[in-house]
Write a protein that binds this DNA or RNA. Structure first.
Length: 420
RNA sequence: GGGGAGGUGGCUGAGUGGCCGAAAGCACCCGCCUGCUAAGCGGGUAGGGGGUGUAAAGCUCCCUCGAGGGUUCGAAUCCCUCCCUUCCCGCCA
């Protein structure tokens, strides 16, 4: 969230940012309630201060004639505070609905058409054949099963079978190994159900409840990404500045309702209610966050390069970057079968927006007040679409799929999927 | 699921109605002292919010001893509910 203080001092900047993001922002209501809140709070505190003074006198003198006034003061302070608290609660609810501002380098635009390709690696491969889709190949090879998954769980679910399941597991292992051994991330295994406070910390709540699966009769939600438990790992903490940046990597299944995505990507292993993802998260300082964000993006790109997949890096424009993000890049891997780029990673930096919600702070130095940390995250990578890009890129004329070299050590001797 | 114990500052831990936002110790910071190190001596060190201040500093007030409510002029301390930790029993992958 943005601090009340920041909104007081920069209402127009916040309004402008919200408008360019295409998000509503109740700034006028916030400023009005802020005045009301402070009025009642001031009154309550003034009376309370008088009451505290007089109460001390009572303790000394035991003068019973003071009691009636003390009682009245207590009543007044209590009722004023109750009003102030109620207004503050309303105010806090509104604050949670104000979108983040964005960095000056973010391109201004309205839709995904306004996103900017900032770099590209490799080029579209010449397969020398009519490229087939991953779902066509996957079903023919018996490594993907959508029909039975639909019977078991419904649409947007899949079974991976045999070498398909193995390939997915190999990818997870490979990514975790690279990030932990070479990029310096600490691996985490996390809760995959989290409470509302955690969801609010990462800004999945209150705005995006309809995109989450909720456990009945409990304050628990299925995580839409490991970002949620990992970012919240240090909630309510004051971290040592010397320990920053903290770098975490976590593999977790991720669940999303995909509300509002009706009709989009209904074919294939692309937009699923449940999918695997290896997530990178950093917690750092204001001074280093932009730099760490760039590095994290490169860490994710490194996976694509090692897999030999052609990709583009998109700088998301204001209208397409989302409510909480301060700056965002999407990694788009080329999938020749479906003949388009698939989003395999989304890397974002949040400024102190999430840290303020989750109350993650650090102490810049001895005797210095704590400051809110900056949080960063990115997929490194999301599995299904990476798997798709691999299958479609490494397909052969005979319908079999070559295992990329870097995955071979993880495939138990399988170098060609489909060879029996 | 049943029963016991417990949640206090960066950490350990005292405090059972006002003298307590909180003893003592540890850790850390500043200074003194010792030829170095260790020891010793003195001082300092929780968070949030309101007001004032251009801002920082400062000054001032309010709140916070797991969370929320209650009793009281006054609550870390008494009462209720919830959450969490831990131990014993039961069940169990």
């Amino acid at each position: 969230m943005l601090s009340l203080d920041f909104i007081r001092k920069n209402p127009d900047a916040v309004r402008r940012a919200a408008q360019l993001k295409g998000e509503p922002a109740p700034i006028d209501d916030i400023l009005r309630l802020d005045g009301v809140w402070r009025g009642h709070l001031h009154k309550a505190e003034t009376v309370k201060a008088e009451q505290n003074e007089l109460s001390k006198e009572f303790a000394r003198t035991r003068d019973e004639s003071l009691k009636e006034r003390l009682r009245q003061m207590a009543d007044t302070a209590k009722s004023e505070l109750a009003v102030a608290d109620a207004v503050k609660k309303e105010l806090d609810d509104l604050l949670l609905r104000v979108p983040n501002i964005f960095h000056e380098s973010v391109p201004v635009g309205e839709t995904e058409a306004d996103n900017v390709v900032i770099r590209e690696w490799g080029s579209k491969p010449d397969l020398g054949l009519a490229a087939r889709t991953h779902y066509d190949l996957g079903e023919a090879l018996g490594i993907m099963d959508f029909e039975r998954a639909a019977r078991v769980a419904g649409s947007r679910f899949a079974f991976l079978v045999g070498d398909g399941a193995r390939l997915e597991r190999a990818l997870v292992q490979f990514m975790l190994d690279v990030h932990t051994r070479e990029h310096g991330y600490v691996e985490l295994w996390t809760p995959m159900l989290v409470n509302s406070a955690a969801m609010t910390g990462t800004a999945n709540l209150p705005k995006f409840a309809d995109q989450l699966f909720k456990v009945e009769d409990r304050d628990l939600w299925l995580i839409p990404t490991a970002e949620v438990p990992v970012t919240n790992l240090h909630r309510e903490e004051i971290l040592d500045a010397e320990r920053l940046p903290l770098k975490y990597v976590s593999y977790a299944p991720s669940w999303r309702t995909e509300a509002g995505a009706a009709g989009k990507d209904t074919r294939g292993f692309i937009r699923m209610h449940q999918f695997s993802k290896v997530e990178l998260v950093k917690v750092t300082t204001a001074e280093t966050s932009l730099d760490e964000f760039e590095k994290l993006t490169h860490d994710a790109e490194d996976i694509l390069q090692r897999l030999g997949l052609h990709y583009q890096v998109l700088a998301m424009c204001t209208g397409d970057m989302g409510f909480a993000q301060y700056k965002k890049y999407d990694l788009m891997a080329w999938a020749p079968g479906v003949d388009r780029y698939l989003e395999v990673s989304s890397c974002s930096t949040f400024n102190d927006f999430q840290a303020m919600r989750a109350n993650i702070r650090y102490r810049p130095g001895r005797g210095v007040s704590p400051k809110f940390a900056h949080t960063i995250n990115g997929s490194g990578l999301a599995l299904p679409r990476t798997l798709d890009a691999i299958i479609e890129t490494y397909q052969r004329a005979d319908g079999m799929v070559t295992v990329p070299d870097v995955l071979k050590p993880y495939m138990g001797g399988v170098e060609l999927i489909g060879a029996r």
